[in-house]
Design a binder for these strands. Structure first.
Length: 270
DNA sequence: ACTGGCCCCTGTACGC
DNA sequence: TGCGTACAGGGGCCAG
């Protein structure tokens, strides 16, 4: 589920209910997500006040007044519930605040993660250090991507999923962006000309922005923290549409690239 | 230095 | 109805 737009939506939702809140209770119901939740997370969070939020790639960041950054990754199936009515089997981590607000991290597959890092160490945190540029900033531009793709015989689809090439694009938006750019997913990085690379950049930025504006995509288990659903999934042109007709009249195809489903129209994408 | 392949884990959908 | 199988939005790690 959660690619950049969904994480951005989640961060905004959490920010609305938690900014300025003092944490009075922290529960770790299950400590082994992708990696263990830090053993000292309770003593470091309890009594602190949440001051701000940020997002890097598909990671959400919650800052407190002790210069600690709580970093979450939602993996494939994670989401935050706000003021949950009941605590279920897969609610692994719960925060309660002074004003009686409660959030829980729900993640059945446990591919997500929670880390607590000193703010000053964020730039050298290994998981952040290797990330490529944020797609919605000026760092993700023609000059950069051209040089990054020029030395790679890997397919453009796999390159877009590589977080070191561009941070935050996942399987859905990679498929949709390549469709919009008119570039076939199997094309190798070093086969793309300047115009095609420019189209890909433009498509990624546009699609991510649209998806954020729509509150992310809704698939099987995604909801905004408030419980509302996102609407971007209604705008998918190719993702999940194998055998359906493209707007051009051709049939949308599916193949597996790097173990991930890839959807495209070989008539529109060359 | 890159690459492909495998693995983590649970829930759901579908075919027999 | 029930069971086995395939598949799902992510990414780390390893061997080659």
């Amino acid at each position: 589920m959660p690619e950049l737009p969904e994480v951005e939506t989640t961060v905004r939702g959490l920010s609305q209910v938690l900014t300025g809140e003092k944490i009075i209770e922290v529960k770790v119901c299950r400590s082994n997500l992708r990696r263990p939740i830090p053993y000292d997370i309770q003593e470091r969070l309890i009594g602190s006040t949440i001051i701000s939020f940020d997002r890097r790639a598909k990671y959400g960041i919650i800052f407190n007044d002790r210069e600690d950054a709580l970093i979450f990754h939602l993996g494939m199936s994670g989401r935050w519930k706000i003021n949950p009515e009941t605590i279920e089997k897969h609610d692994h981590f719960i925060l309660k605040t002074e004003n009686n607000r409660c959030v829980s991290l729900y993640d059945p597959r446990r591919f997500g993660s929670l880390d607590l890092i000193k703010t000053k160490d964020l730039l050298i945190w290994p998981y952040f250090k290797k990330l490529g540029p944020e797609p919605l900033t000026g760092d993700f531009n023609l000059e950069y991507l051209k040089s990054r793709l020029a030395r790679s015989a890997t397919s453009i689809k796999k390159l877009l999923l590589n977080q070191q090439v561009v941070a935050g694009v996942g399987n859905i938006y990679a498929c949709e962006a390549l469709y919009q750019a008119g570039v076939h997913p199997e094309r190798s990085g070093n086969s793309l000309n300047k115009q095609e690379i420019a189209s890909i950049i433009e498509a990624i930025k546009e699609i991510l922005q649209k998806a954020i504006a729509e509150g992310g995509s809704t698939l099987k288990d995604y909801a905004r923290p408030s419980g509302e659903l996102g609407y971007f999934s209604a705008q998918f042109k190719v993702y999940g549409k194998e055998d359906a007709l493209c707007e051009c009249g051709a049939t949308i195809e599916r193949s597996v690239m790097g173990g991930r489903s890839t959807f495209f129209c070989s008539s529109c994408q060359k």
